[in-house]
């Protein structure tokens, strides 16, 4: 269990993080969302003990990061933003160094290092200085370093940044595979990633928590939640007819494709049945009909732009 209580950080007069309070339980993969500069990295740095909070506390399985930093850090694996490492070292030496600090010895050390090599496919660069590696490999070395002691809590600051789509997919699968009994905090600004790996998402903007829920719950806040997209043969007065269907709040015509509409429901209404009944009543030939779950980026934009406005 991680307990974060009234966590705040000011840099001079700038409030980077304001009064964050939340808990994360084992098995949860918490996605940290927010625009650049929202305070994601600062929050992660406080959770991992790299910087001290201005006020508030962080407790990792009962170990306060300020009062008992060693106890807390033992349970943590951390991939800092940009995956820093000692560039002059090879992955082999670097991981051996981290394993030594983590107290892994003998056979256990060897076995964990080998597991990381195969898990993150590091064989081909195993004896090359880290500073000569591609961004993708550097990130994987950073992940290996964070995972080597099989930590209970994993904090990953933009783990898939700089990876190609295949590598992104591999990292997501890795996170899903190890997630079962761990606490994982992932920051990202890739929204699809949240739906793909996270069981819970938090949106922070201007240092404040603005949304907290499962990805589905957040999507449900989207104006497009339950929206119906359909493609009809072009004819006069279509838009007016569609707007008259009970429950339909708004009709958006696709300017690029005539006959294609997005029907946005009034809040809380499900319009799919009414729309399909109307279509069959009118005898239209439909080329496409589907209902949307909502889009995280709508929610993200709506919540984060509002929080940004509060600042001014």
């Amino acid at each position: 269990m991680i307990e974060i209580s009234h966590l705040s950080k000011e840099f001079g007069h700038f409030a980077a993080v304001r009064d964050l309070t939340f808990n994360v339980a084992p098995g949860e993969v918490l996605g940290f969302l927010g625009p650049n500069g929202a305070g994601k990295t600062t929050t992660m740095r406080m959770i991992t003990g790299f910087i001290a909070p201005s006020s508030g506390s962080v407790s990792i399985y009962g170990h306060d990061i300020q009062a008992d930093p060693i106890g807390a850090k033992r349970r943590l694996g951390y991939l800092p933003e940009g995956a820093p490492a000692y560039g002059d070292m090879t992955p082999a030496r670097f991981l051996a160094f981290v394993a030594d600090i983590r107290g892994l010895r003998g056979g256990q050390k060897k076995q964990r290092i080998e597991a990381m090599v195969s898990e993150l496919e590091l064989q081909s660069v195993w004896h090359r200085p880290i500073e000569t590696l591609s961004k993708g490999f550097k990130r994987r070395v950073g992940l290996a370093q964070a995972l080597i002691h099989d930590p209970q809590v994993l904090v990953l600051d933009e783990p898939t940044d700089g990876l190609d789509p295949n590598q992104k997919q591999q990292v997501r699968e890795l996170i899903r595979r190890i997630a079962a009994d761990k606490i994982i905090l992932v920051s990202t600004h890739i929204l699809e990633e949240v739906s793909a790996v996270c069981s819970r998402a938090m949106i922070i903007a201007a240092g404040r928590l603005v949304a907290d829920g499962s990805p589905a719950q957040l999507q449900a806040q989207s104006r497009n939640h339950g929206a119906v997209v359909l493609q009809l043969p072009v004819q006069e007065g279509l838009q007016q007819q569609l707007a008259a269907i009970p429950g339909v709040g708004e009709v958006e015509a696709d300017a690029a494709q005539p006959g294609r509409f997005r029907l946005i429901p009034e809040t809380g209404k499900d319009i799919l049945l009414a729309v399909s009944a109307h279509i069959s009543g009118a005898g239209w030939q439909i080329a496409e009909l589907r209902q949307e779950e909502g889009r995280l980026d709508d929610v993200f934009r709506a919540l984060t732009s509002r929080a940004g406005e509060d600042l001014h």
Binding site: R45, F50, P69, P84, A85, V98, Q145
Partner: peptide
């Protein structure tokens, strides 16, 4: 950041 977030 890496060094100071290790248990050291």
């Amino acid at each position: 950041e890496l060094l100071l977030t290790l248990p050291v």
